[in-house]
């Protein structure tokens, strides 16, 4: 590559974008960090109060619980979505009837509005699930799952219903990059389907596995739409996610500054998780 003089055109292509990005993204981020050191409720006067908000956060059972719930939800959903979508992708990649129809059908939930889908499921849980369960004499399920200690499972179900679509398509793309000869070679060695999968298929689609993990984790840690439509955080505070608490209490509870501190802690935690994931990525020597 021969080195060229830096063209002014390149500068003009990037500087406005940089400016806008700083103004609309970085500036509010810094502003949020600033609020977190005040006692401002959104309107009216305020004082600087140092780290008091942060200190209070670590003693606030509602906030601590929202982190526990969010992580529990994200871990379970990420695992479930990835396992399910891997199985579906394997099935779609095998010799089946109507492959295109199935593929289209399995991807459809991805294009739908999460909020509206959650409203549909809300009705399903409150009006269909109890009557179907009592007809089948499954007394444990005869109550709306969203009103019990298992409400979080209801949210996981909705997240999976929609989330599996995306990961399936990625795994399928991965599986289709594996040439037929690889399998033939391993079949000649007399490998069982099980070893075949773990020794041949999985290592070859490992990069897709990692991408899926990263994207899914990022999405599910910020869960919001499903909660609003399904439980509104209940019963009690059982299904309040971090994003939900920041929104509800930040705007509605007069805790703008306090929830800004919460958001700052959330930012740090997400960055730590991202760094951890990048570490794992590098460990696997996968190009991101």
């Amino acid at each position: 590559m021969f080195r060229m003089r830096l063209s002014w055109a390149y500068i003009w292509m990037t500087i406005p974008a940089l400016g806008l990005f700083m103004y609309f993204h970085t500036w509010p981020t810094l502003h949020g960090l600033m609020y977190s050191f005040t006692n401002w409720n959104g309107f009216g006067p305020f004082q600087w109060i140092g780290f008091s908000n942060y200190a209070a956060l670590f003693k606030d059972p509602q906030v601590i619980h929202s982190y526990l719930f969010t992580f529990q939800f994200a871990v379970v959903t990420v695992i479930l979505v990835n396992v399910l979508s891997l199985i579906i992708a394997l099935a779609l990649n095998s010799k089946i009837v109507l492959p295109k129809t199935f593929k289209a059908l399995y991807f459809m939930p991805y294009v739908l509005s999460t909020l509206v889908v959650s409203y549909i499921f809300n009705y399903l849980f409150s009006n269909v699930e109890p009557s179907v369960a009592s007809a089948l004499h499954l007394t444990n399920l005869a109550q709306n799952i969203l009103g019990t200690n298992w409400a979080w499972v209801g949210i996981v179900i909705v997240a999976c219903w929609q989330g599996v679509a995306f990961n399936t398509i990625l795994y399928l793309a991965g599986l289709q990059t594996i040439p037929e000869e690889v399998y033939e070679a391993s079949m000649i060695d007399g490998a069982s389907p099980w070893t075949n999968f773990w020794k041949v298929t999985f290592p070859l689609i490992a990069p897709f596995f990692t991408i899926n993990m990263v994207l899914a984790a990022k999405n599910y840690l910020q869960v919001f739409d499903q909660i609003v439509a399904l439980t509104n955080g209940g019963p009690g505070t059982a299904t309040q996610s971090v994003a939900f608490v920041i929104y509800t209490n930040g705007f509605g509870g007069g805790e703008l500054a306090y929830q800004s501190a919460n958001a700052a802690v959330f930012l740090i935690i997400l960055i730590l998780i991202a760094l951890l994931q990048v570490r794992v990525l590098q460990g696997r020597e996968v190009q991101l």
Binding site: A243, S260, A263
Partner: peptide, 9 residues
């Protein structure tokens, strides 16, 4: 950067 931190400001 999670959206919640940008949201309020």
């Amino acid at each position: 950067v999670p959206f919640p931190i940008i949201m309020l400001p």
